[in-house]
Amino acid sequence: MLKRPFRLLGTGPRAAARQAGVLIVVAGLLALLGMVNDPQHTDRLVTVALCDLVLAAVAFLFPWGRTGRYAPAAIGLAGFAVIGLSTWSFGGVAAGTGPFLVLLYAWAALHFPRWILLAFLVPATAAYLVPLILTHQPRMVLGSATVLMPIALTVALLIEVQTRHLRDDRERLARIEQWRVAMVNTLAHDVRAPLSTIRGVLEELKEDNSGQGVSMLDAALRQTARIARLADGLLDLQRIDNSGHLKLDRETLPAKTLVEDALRYVRPDADVTADVDPELTVHLDRQRFEQILLNLVNNALRYGRPPVVVSFTRDGDFDRLEVRDHGPGIPDTLRQNLFGQFAVGSKDGVGLGLWIVRQLATAHGGQAVAEPRTPGVAMVITFPTHPTPA
């Protein structure tokens, strides 16, 4: 079994401990460097460095994931003790250890609630003052604690408030995402049962009818089948969000037939024409291509002006699908985010159509862009002629 990679960033007791370990390793290395400037206290500085490294080893190696959420706060308490030892080792000079005390407080603010920060105030103050008292520092130096400790606590409380705010926002977004996933999955699954019933009824009616009624029932059956495929597509697109991959069923198909079959789902009175080379063959997933083309054509009919022209041509190593309308076009400020999720919603939709188009184009190894025309706009989808496996 592969071991999980080392992770420094994140939340939870394991990440908190490792981040504290990094700070403590830095403190230990600085203690070793301090022997150069203060060779008279080499033995003390070595002791401080060893204490730092032992504490860092505990921070990195102890199974914090099995402990409580706030268990790594014990590292902070031990860290304050080592800071006090370091100050004493430097003969009561706190110029180097004071900033580490503030950093340790800031680390605690990233991972623990304010009551722990307030509880740290006594041991942190003792870690700062006791070495100064033991080394007989003047009253003015002792008074520096009245400046350092309020600053450390204030900085920590500000960080804690901001971190809590961000954490609450993340949890809220996670709940929204859970509801979104549940809603999409429920809709996609639950729509199949009534569709099966409707399809069965339509097929029975088709057997009992003739003439014009048969063609109408054929159209209804095609639309029913398309809704079923769209439900499957919703599930597939949900998998894109979760895993970043979409399984494609590619085939070598005649482009003209592919376009004409898809356009059968467009209402008969729509002014849509197709300009496709009869000799052109493409290697695509039929169902996904149908979703792409119908999304683009329906958008062109809804937001642009007729005629809508569909062309499919080969351009070097790419097959180029273009759906052009003759409407007012798209503002430059909107075009940049046009294919984003929920980017362009309206009373007629929520802005998912073009996002779906981009996801399906990307799954094929292609791209989706909007190109200005005079008048109108052309939605251009490219597909590689020699696609790599999805």
Rank of each mutant, 00 (worst) to 15 (best):
L103I: 12
L142T: 01
R199Q: 13
T146K: 03
A156Q: 04
Y128S: 05
T135Y: 09
L173E: 15
F100Y: 08
S196T: 11
L158Y: 02
L195P: 11
A182N: 07
L85S: 01
S144T: 10
L121T: 15
G98C: 05
S196D: 05
R167P: 00
V184H: 06
T163I: 01
F90L: 15
E177R: 03
L158R: 04
T197A: 12
V201Y: 03
I151N: 04
G92D: 04
L118M: 05
T146Q: 04
D218A: 11
E203M: 09
W179T: 12
L103G: 15
T146I: 10
S196P: 00
A174E: 15
A219D: 12
L118V: 09
R175I: 05
A95P: 00
H111M: 10
L85Y: 04
A152S: 14
P150M: 15
R199F: 04
I151K: 01
W107S: 03
V214I: 10
T125F: 06
L121S: 13
L148A: 02
S215H: 09
P194D: 02
T154S: 14
R167W: 07
I133V: 15
E177M: 06
R175A: 15
P113V: 11
G213F: 06
L104Q: 08
G211H: 07
Q178P: 02
L132T: 10
T97D: 08
E204D: 07
P138M: 08
A156P: 03
L134D: 07
F120N: 01
A145L: 08
Q212T: 13
S215L: 09
Q137C: 09
I116K: 02
V93E: 11
M183A: 07
E207V: 06
T87M: 10
L85K: 01
A193H: 08
G213L: 15
M149P: 01
L158P: 00
Q178S: 10
K206T: 07
A95W: 07
R180A: 14
W179H: 11
V161H: 12
F90P: 00
L132P: 03
H136Y: 09
N185R: 05
A119V: 00
A220H: 06
W88R: 03
R229Q: 14
P113I: 10
L221R: 02
V214Q: 06
A127P: 02
A108V: 07
P113T: 13
